[in-house]
Design a binder for these strands. Structure first.
Lengths: 193, 193
DNA sequence: CGTTTGCTTGAATTCTGTCAAAGCAGGTGG
DNA sequence: CCACCTGCTTTGACAGAATTCAAGCAAACG
């Protein structure tokens, strides 16, 4: 919990009185591997700080899972779109590993925003951060082919490649498991001229 | 200028004193068709309100233009990522039609945020809005094929299809002009069983 | 030790991009 | 008013790449 405060403080400074307003929004939750945290159709009015574990955010379409994002320790997971709009989630969140979470109730958080300018600012910074994240992801999907996306992922987030099974990485990259297998093969043996 | 204030007010209420703090950030600019507003490599520390005209935001890669977004009257255009991070823009903005713009200086705006909680909130709402925008775009690129993306575009933003040449729409959708032409052909004559 | 799960590999198919060429405007200048 | 030119869209043929389907293989697990 102090770790979460430290993470938030690094984004934008929080005073003790700010923190007291955040406290009522907090609760705790443990998850088993595979447990679902948010299902498509529910309203995702919670944000999760990951003290321990690994989560994944994905779309379900025609029975297939399309993974949009992975969340690691000391990070925040949420269907932000659903939090912001209050509309039912289009996404599902579940645990890839056993998790220890700190749950933040979003409506409560929103009320706190209106009572403290510095929390309001923190809120803005968090959205900004998330904006940059999707924008990067969008750019990568838009400009790069699957092979380049994989190389980018390996170099920029090696943890993902280490801790997550390959068929999920394939889904994240937007290719089939077979496709990723071939990409890896291609990259393993560079040009033999 | 009153129109811009009205647009902003609809997002989050602005008082007269708030507005006075925004005023120093404002200036005006006219653009000819084809004129470039922001080039890749520059810092995009401005946001543009479009009183009149039509803008486009795109990546330049290997001499090719990959269009990410179109901006219409009464909307805001910017390379938000560059505004937020202060890093050089990866994107270019130019005018598809003659434009009349109200320019907002982003650093000045940021200072105003820290002086008024309601502006801070407005700032948050604007980022939220933009977040939802990229998230939607990202989802569409990730889940749908080019044909479905085109149908979505036609039904959700018919103005785009009407006012913008087809080869640019193709670029926006992430296909070649030939590809889009075939998609349209396919959609024109439904299943003849 | 057998079963399950995930990764790889091969062959057939489908799709998309590329290249080249031809129609079809809309605008310009004779 | 007409002819031409330029830029955009369409079309066809072809090659390349990715998905799909099917099978084999290795490691993990009960």
């Amino acid at each position: 919990m102090d770790r979460m405060r430290a993470v938030l403080h690094a984004i934008s400074p929080i005073s003790d009185s700010d923190w007291e307003m955040v406290l009522p929004a907090l609760s705790f939750r443990s998850l088993q591997k595979g447990e679902i945290l948010l299902s498509e159709g529910q309203v995702g009015n919670q944000v999760y700080f990951i003290r321990e574990g690994l989560l994944r955010l994905y779309y379900l379409r025609d029975g297939e899972e399309h993974i949009r994002q992975f969340f690691f320790e000391n990070g925040f997971a949420a269907d932000f779109a659903s939090c912001i709009t209050g509309a039912p989630a289009l996404l599902t969140i579940d645990a890839l590993e056993p998790c220890e979470l700190t749950v933040l109730d979003y409506p409560t958080l929103n009320q706190a925003y209106d009572q403290s300018p510095s929390l309001q600012k923190l809120g803005r910074k968090i959205v900004e951060y998330n904006f940059l994240g999707v924008a990067r992801r969008m750019t990568s999907l838009f400009l790069l082919d699957a092979e380049a996306r994989y190389e980018e992922l390996v170099s920029s987030r090696p943890k993902v490649v280490q801790r997550i099974p390959q068929y999920m990485i394939a889904s994240y990259l937007g290719v089939t498991p077979e496709g990723l297998s071939r990409i890896r093969k291609r990259l393993a043996q560079p040009d033999r001229s």
